[in-house]
Design a protein around this nucleic acid. Structure first.
Lengths: 335, 335
DNA sequence: CTTTTTTTTGAGAGCGCTCTCAAAGATTAA
DNA sequence: TTAATCTTTGAGAGCGCTCTCAAAAAAAAG
């Protein structure tokens, strides 16, 4: 059953039915009711392909999460929170959400071509795209608007993004450790292919400098935003006897905490720990983690709204949104 | 630029270009190369709306996760694992994945209508649909194939589903506790609006009966598959002095563990705990949880493959797939 | 009433593909 | 060489909508 069929049953023209399903005001109430009842009775669903063909809009936005499985699966409820924000906002704006999950390799031209098809989605949201990612370099050729969640590197300053103030977050975390009297503050970074890791590290260094403390590179270990990286990072750090740790994420902090406990250190007495994100693991750790809370759901919501504004050309590229973070003090740092 | 434009540039007809982009064998190599190079050079993307209009296929499958936020966000990496399986399989089968996240209320007719639009998706996968859900009753009117992840109640026996053997899982968990000498075994259930919770409870009872142990309803508490439910459930159980707990999920077990610790109980010495799922929290708990591992990613993969088989009418409804579970022994139960 | 204005409706083209069917070209068999 | 077969190509209809433009109907003004 198509528009024509409904029209026949209701004794009107195709145009009128079209007006009804598109909520046009130029239909008399009597006609509208008649048409609606036929639609209801026939359980009619408009063919959105036909609509998309003429409107040149699909009302679908694409979300690309190219994180490798170990990050996507280990980061606790970071991704669920983000997805929740994205899903919520797309629904509220009457869009549908297409999702591309999982690693994309260079040779998968087919997939990259599909993702960037301007006839499939009206716009794209890229989550935590690393700068060594095959899609990263294709961004400039994209013919539909896109928004990145997490700031890309400087070479992509033409891109729209929604991020948090990671530098400030790193500063606040480190300042807190300094304030409670710690002096040998270690840092386990995140994956250095995304700016979050760089910026949190920068914030850490800023705070040390501002307090006149030395930057000791033996106290800085590169990690991957994973539990394992935190665990092994801490093992590497232990010989250098840190009295505090700022971890690039709560998951990293949890891994480090485990390693510290196994080494017989008491947290927070012997070692203060501050994480980042404030995901569920922060609260479930023992002791609960002091952390920098970031508005994860908001990132998803704001990114979606921004993308839709871009699609409708209500704003023009590039747009940069930076959301605030907040220190949450719990037991893992004492003081 | 459309097919016609590419055709002109390549000096062939629209039909031939169509053949090329659809990998038809009936094109000479010379022509194919010529067309492909024009496509490449023009960065051409076929209009999939036009294609869908004539093919009556969108090559999109819809995934509906109507879980309330507190479940979606708290269940640790259960959902990421599932999504990973779903995403992986849809990609492998050359489909795109549309996602509907979050609660759907009765009054949201508009959304339900969108979800069930047969022109938008070729089929649907419902994840953990509760039997009190507004979509549950609409299933019979759906005009596209659908697969449920987790067995629905008996009234929906015409539905396709992929599940695990929850009854057996509950039995194995409980049998294990009995085997290591526990006699006052408590159970905190999941949300009773889905069969998983029922079946695990049934398995628990089966095992007790088989061992000649009484079923003590003071040792059975209804929960919600959440950390909080586990925590409060344990508090309710403590006065009845259980010596073991079978929790309906690892998240519940983790909450219960916390409550037990706070009450001064030693785990596993005073209280053995067995969880269910084997999600990350099981390993990160202290002590690590003995649990029933279920193949979460596989559920997603199998459901996707089944759906695609249904779409292509390679199999006919109803199909019921039950995947096996496995006991994973860790520290939380001693013995 | 008639004329003007406003509201409501219909006709028809066109969005960019696929698919069938027939024609043309190339290859092989007779 | 001609006929038969196989391979490759093109023409054209049609998928189910939206949107513009004009016509018809209803309401308001004169």
């Amino acid at each position: 059953m198509d528009l024509e069929g409904i029209a026949r049953k209701a004794g009107v023209s195709r145009s009128t039915v079209s007006r009804v399903i598109n909520n046009s005001p130029n239909v008399s109430d009597r006609t509208r009711q008649r048409v609606l009842s036929v639609i209801e009775q026939e359980n009619f669903h408009p063919n959105i392909a036909a609509r998309a063909l003429v409107k040149r809009r699909t009302d679908i936005i694409g979300v690309v999460i190219p994180s490798p499985a170990n990050v996507f699966l280990s980061d606790n409820n970071y991704y669920p929170m983000l997805l929740s924000g994205l899903g919520q906002a797309t629904r509220a704006l009457d869009y549908a959400m297409l999702m591309w999950l999982g690693e994309v390799t260079h040779d998968d031209q087919h997939l990259m071509h599909k993702i960037s098809n301007p006839h499939l989605t009206d716009g794209l949201i890229f989550v935590s795209l690393t700068n060594d990612h095959p899609l990263y370099t294709k961004l400039s050729r994209l013919r539909i608007p896109f928004v990145m969640i997490d700031r890309p590197f400087a070479d992509l300053d033409y891109a729209n993004y929604v991020s948090i103030d990671n530098v400030r977050g790193g500063e606040v975390a480190t300042e807190h450790l300094i304030r409670i009297g710690r002096r040998r503050i270690a840092h386990i970074t995140g994956m250095m292919t995304i700016t979050d890791a760089h910026d949190r590290l920068a914030g850490y260094k800023n705070a040390l400098r501002a307090a006149g403390l030395p930057i000791d590179y033996r106290l800085i270990v590169e990690g991957q935003f994973t539990y394992e990286a935190g665990y092994h990072g801490m093992k590497t750090l232990l010989p250098h006897q840190p009295d505090a740790l700022f971890a690039a994420s709560d998951t990293v902090a949890a891994g480090a905490l485990q390693a510290a406990k196994e080494a017989g250190l008491r947290v927070p007495e012997d070692l203060s720990i501050v994480g980042f994100d404030d995901v569920d693991i922060a609260l479930q750790s023992n002791p609960a983690l002091t952390t920098i809370r970031q508005p994860i759901r908001d990132k998803g919501e704001v990114a979606t709204r921004l993308l839709v504004d871009l699609i409708h050309e209500r704003v023009s590229s590039p747009q940069h949104v930076v959301l605030p973070t907040e220190l949450v003090v719990r037991q893992s740092c004492g003081g």
